[in-house]
Amino acid sequence: MASEALSSPLDAVAAPPRRRFPTLRRLLRHKLFLVGAFLFSIVLVAALFADLLIQVDPNRISMRHKFRPPGSEWIFGTDNFGRSQWSRVVKGAQLSLAIGFGVVLLNALFGTLLGALAGYFRALDNLLMRIMDAFMAFPVILLAIGITAALGPGSINAVIALAAVYTPRTARIVRASVLVVREQAYVEAARAMGASNLRILLRHVLPNCTAPLIVQLTFIFAYSVLSEAVLSFLGLGAAPPTPTWGNIIAEGRLYIREAPWITLIPGLALAMTVLGLNLLGDGLRDVLDPRLKVQQ
């Protein structure tokens, strides 16, 4: 019928004018992304310049000054040992972000590796995915608790445990993207031209999986910071007196009636970090991966 003859002159659409950095522009127009960036950068600056921001050693005990409420002398008040809450919370930010970053790094590495292997080599897919399923059958925190309980408490072990818990989730997402990309015409073309599997994976498949990966890793960062706090709240993170947000809250809990700020402030810092990262993740998802769009 005539439809095909008609469609050629009629369906042509004028190409929109190309601008440079379109993704960045769209991110900068995304209000909640900017709010997230703002919140997160506060924590990031605190972590990066912790040593400049702290006048008092976070572990200096001064019983004369214990339970001072937040005010002009002690910005965030003092705890039951008269230690500066400001110093401890800022130091905690450093550790929290370092742990979150460590988990993200390990996730990016092993998640991509496992996801790419499973998605690209069908023979491995079933076995790898069943193993991932088994890891994901455990509730996140419970498995992380099990692993840190076995390995022993400590920051490094917390990173290992959280990486082990979140990697299967990242791998699944990479795998799903690889499955889509490997069927694309340009991958077929590369294969037809005799490109090796490794080359196809590195040059064609993986670069096209970065968008969902970046979104996922932003959320993993948020979850890791949150989960690390849970672990150290339970005594599985860095051992006291090293301050972490989780163990400050755990200690402050005992004095919650007379000195609620000990608990309140690290919780707010934690919430701000996680909220900031969640907003960044939402924004990145809206812009980079519109298929998953959750409208703000």
């Binding site: 608990t263 919780g267 919430a271 996680v274 909220l275 969640n278």
Partner: peptide, 12 residues
């Protein structure tokens, strides 16, 4: 809700 740590929320 998805950003507040639940153990902290419980204490509050």
């Amino acid at each position: 809700g998805v950003s507040l740590p639940n153990f902290w929320l419980a204490l509050m």
